[in-house]
């Protein structure tokens, strides 16, 4: 089935105020740049965003924080964003901090039809407060629930019009998990190709999880921490 749409604006059709979104990426690596820009243009608001991080002040999800389109953020680490800090401390922004492995597995569970699972992370800490705990084979675990989204926005390196996706390097991160967990999953790719051009053995996300796909443009791919070594 041909799932291609013309661009990011067309891809966001049906996305409304108050919806829950998953947004792929780790820091600024592997984020859906075109879709975030289109969200900012659309003015849609009161969003709940599930994403490992919250971008930086002027890029990534930071753009949607600046325009106050996000009501609640579910993330594991949010340390790179001064506007985020201001909104959180003033109470404008609701924040749920989740251990990174739990966040990943909760997305995977949402995409795999598993409503809850037991995990050791956070046992005995404040993130386990109010949650069911249970001992298995002598070790304590905390029950965590799945996460699902009205829309999942992911970024891949290459995709075909059937929605099959291939990621590049560590830009993979949360993208395949979030792709599975969206009621509607939108993929933006650097290279959109015809069916048959991706070897089936090389597909990371099978097209069944993807509903809309388009080729993005003007990728900035900003680097947060440029670290290099000197040539000998």
């Amino acid at each position: 089935m041909d799932k291609r749409v013309t661009d990011a604006d067309a891809a966001l059709k049906g996305l409304k105020d108050g919806m829950t979104l998953m947004v792929g990426g780790f820091g600024l690596c592997g984020i859906p740049e075109n879709l975030i820009a289109a969200l900012a243009r659309s003015g849609v608001k009161d969003l709940t965003c599930i994403s490992n991080n919250a971008g930086v002040d002027d890029f990534g999800l930071g753009l949607l924080l600046k325009s106050k389109q996000i009501k609640k953020m579910i993330a594991s680490y949010v340390g790179e964003n001064a506007e985020f800090e201001r909104q959180m401390l003033s109470g404008e922004l609701e924040v749920d901090l989740v251990p990174q492995g739990n966040l990943a597995e909760r997305c995977r569970a949402g995409g795999a039809g598993i409503p809850a699972f037991f995990t050791p992370a956070g046992y005995g800490t404040e993130v386990a407060e109010g949650k069911e705990t249970r001992e298995f084979d002598g070790k304590m675990y905390v029950m965590e629930r799945w996460l699902r989204a009205d829309y999942s926005l992911v970024k891949a390196w290459k995709g075909d019009t059937n929605g099959n996706l291939v990621y590049n390097r560590t830009a993979r991160n949360f993208n395949p998990l979030m792709a599975m967990a969206g009621t509607i999953t939108i993929a933006e790719v650097e290279h959109l190709v015809e069916p048959g051009e991706i070897d089936p053995d090389h597909v990371h996300t099978p097209g069944i999880f993807v509903h809309r796909i388009f080729q993005g443009k003007n990728y900035e791919k900003r680097i947060e921490q440029r670290t290099v070594r000197q040539r000998a």
Partner: peptide, 26 residues
């Protein structure tokens, strides 16, 4: 830009390295 570590620093791959998603990592 597509190859960073958990501190978001640019890094390299050694021969025989592997890339995977965050759920597989944890």
């Amino acid at each position: 830009a597509d190859l960073i570590n958990a501190g978001k620093q640019t890094v390299t791959l050694l021969p025989g390295s592997a890339i995977f998603d965050s759920a597989t990592s944890f």
